[in-house]
Simulated assay, not measured.
Amino acid sequence: MSTTTRPAPGELVFRDADERDVPALVALVESAYRGDASRAGWTTEADILQGQRTDPEGVLAVINAPGGRLLVVERDGVLVACCQLEHRGDFAYFGMFAVRPGTQGGGVGKAVMAEAERVAKETWGVTEMHMTVISVRDELVAWYERRGYRRTGRMTPFPYGDERFGVPQRDDLEFELLLKVL
């Protein structure tokens, strides 16, 4: 007699993304950051960037990247979040983090970050997690700081003119490296 363990109702289920997930992942990331739908959550970039946040090719590249993973997070069979993990030597890079706008503020993001940190540490033995955040996103940076990340002051320019990253609505955008010792 075999038993199949099913997740409890409301439980978050983590798995690696595959090519079949691409359309749903693009829609999730776009809904979390761009356009009017993103305003239902607090992580919107709609006031500073318009246009796309990602596209199917970009998501597929993350899924297929050597040394990387794109974690899919489901609750009751519905995609609610995702994040990218990439092994870069002594550290892991955390990116493409999105939580469905209607579920933001309910602890999903905290749970995803904790799982991502655990996976990176156990899988690759890394001692740090790195990420880049648009430096003018003060509320978002503060949220990461409450999770143990620290600002480094190390900036990289925003890719103005490359619409794959969106259409900037202001001229002072740059990325800041945040890091956390695991």
Rank of each mutant, 00 (worst) to 15 (best):
M1T: 12
T4P: 02
T5Y: 13
R6M: 14
P7W: 14
A8K: 12
G10V: 07
L12I: 10
L12N: 05
V13F: 00
A17T: 03
A17R: 03
A24L: 05
L25F: 04
V26H: 02
A27R: 08
V29Y: 00
V29Q: 03
S31W: 04
S31H: 01
A32Q: 11
R34C: 09
D36E: 15
S38R: 06
R39M: 12
T43F: 08
T44I: 04
E45L: 14
A46T: 15
A46R: 14
D47H: 11
Q50Y: 00
G51Y: 13
G51N: 08
R53Y: 03
R53Q: 01
R53V: 00
T54Y: 10
T54V: 10
P56C: 02
A61H: 13
V62I: 15
V62W: 04
I63E: 06
I63M: 08
I63H: 06
N64C: 11
R69N: 05
R69S: 15
L70G: 11
V72C: 07
V73A: 03
E74G: 13
R75S: 15
Q84P: 00
L85F: 04
L85G: 00
E86K: 12
H87R: 06
R88N: 07
F91D: 08
A92R: 05
G95C: 07
A98K: 00
V99A: 04
V99M: 05
P101W: 09
T103L: 10
G107D: 12
G109T: 03
K110W: 12
V112P: 05
M113H: 08
A114W: 02
E115C: 01
E117I: 12
V119G: 06
V119P: 03
A120Y: 04
K121P: 00
K121L: 08
E122A: 11
T123H: 15
W124A: 12
W124H: 08
V126R: 03
M129K: 01
H130M: 11
T132R: 07
V133F: 08
I134K: 12
R137F: 09
E139H: 04
L140A: 13
V141N: 03
W143K: 01
W143L: 03
Y149G: 07
R150K: 11
R151N: 10
R151F: 11
G153A: 08
M155G: 08
P157R: 14
F158W: 13
F158P: 10
R164C: 00
V167F: 02
P168Y: 06
Q169T: 09
Q169C: 08
R170I: 04
D171V: 01
D172Q: 07
D172H: 07
L173E: 09
L173D: 12
L173R: 07
E174K: 10
L182M: 14
L182N: 15
